[in-house]
């Protein structure tokens, strides 16, 4: 199947915040329709790189999305959902708000309701539609965030540590979703700490510590020595 997701090219991307260099001369290429993982120590600039890619941070250098045809849909799963946990917003409200069809204070259309129920079932959250978002566990919130990213179907999916709050069943579900997306030719850019999962699922990996430390095929390049060297050092000065 020909990829429907874009290729991504970053050339000389740099970012400084408050006088601190967060990213320095980052260049990397993501192949269309592949799962590309980004690994590295805390403070190494992984999430900042995603935010540059999403156009949410002023950066130096060039970031180009090369779509196979017309620009498709970009979806994003943030690292954590920081919000007002006391807000009376149910899981159904949240997903209906994103659907944008009717104001959230009106009952969604039956078709929208059915789609939301199907999304939740797919994510293992059947029966949780009436739960307040603030009452969900971290893992459940992560699954809701993934549900919103998959509807409408994305062409480029950007994941920021989606497995951080998940239990084993949740992690298996994410793995299954990633494999489905690869089969559909979706490009996935995936920041992840779980290197075993990266080895199993990613096509390529880039190790980032403010700059690119190494990159290559995920199965071959993540040797114990390299990983130890990458993670045993604090973010580069």
């Amino acid at each position: 199947m020909s990829p429907r997701g874009p290729g991504i090219a970053l050339a000389g991307v740099g970012l400084s915040l408050g006088g601190t260099k967060v990213l320095a001369d980052v260049s990397l290429a993501v192949r269309p329709g592949s799962i590309h993982a980004i690994v590295g120590p805390n403070g190494g600039g992984k999430s900042s790189l995603l935010r540059c890619l999403l156009g949410q941070m002023p950066h130096r250098g060039r970031i180009v999305l090369d779509w196979p045809g017309e620009a498709g849909r970009i979806a994003y799963v943030p690292q954590a959902l920081q919000f007002d946990t006391g807000l009376p917003m149910t899981v159904r409200d949240f997903l209906a708000t994103l659907s944008g069809e009717r104001p959230a204070f009106l009952r969604p259309r039956p078709a929208t309701l059915a789609r939301i129920e199907a999304q939740l079932e797919h994510m293992g959250l059947a029966g949780k539609a009436d739960r307040r978002m603030g009452a969900l566990s971290g893992g459940e919130r992560q699954r809701v965030l993934l549900a919103q990213a998959l509807d409408p179907a994305p062409d480029l999916l950007i994941l920021d540590e989606p497995m951080a709050a998940l239990d084993e069943a949740g992690a298996r579900m994410i793995e299954a979703v990633l494999q489905e997306l690869r089969a559909q030719g979706v490009t996935v850019l995936w920041v992840e700490h779980d290197l075993a999962a990266v080895r199993r699922l990613a096509d390529r990996v880039t190790a980032l510590n403010r700059g690119v430390v190494f990159e290559g095929e995920a199965r071959s390049v993540l040797t114990p020595e390299r990983v130890l060297d990458l993670l045993s050092h604090r973010a580069a000065a």
């Binding site: 999403l54 994003y76 943030p78 917003m89 104001p103 959230a104």
Partner: peptide, 21 residues
């Protein structure tokens, strides 16, 4: 308010997600 309610709500609830959308 009625037409833009979802947009106002989402941009308050999670601005980064709203920007991606």
């Amino acid at each position: 308010t009625a037409v833009l309610y979802n947009r106002f709500m989402l941009s308050s609830f999670h601005p980064a997600l709203a920007l991606v959308r």
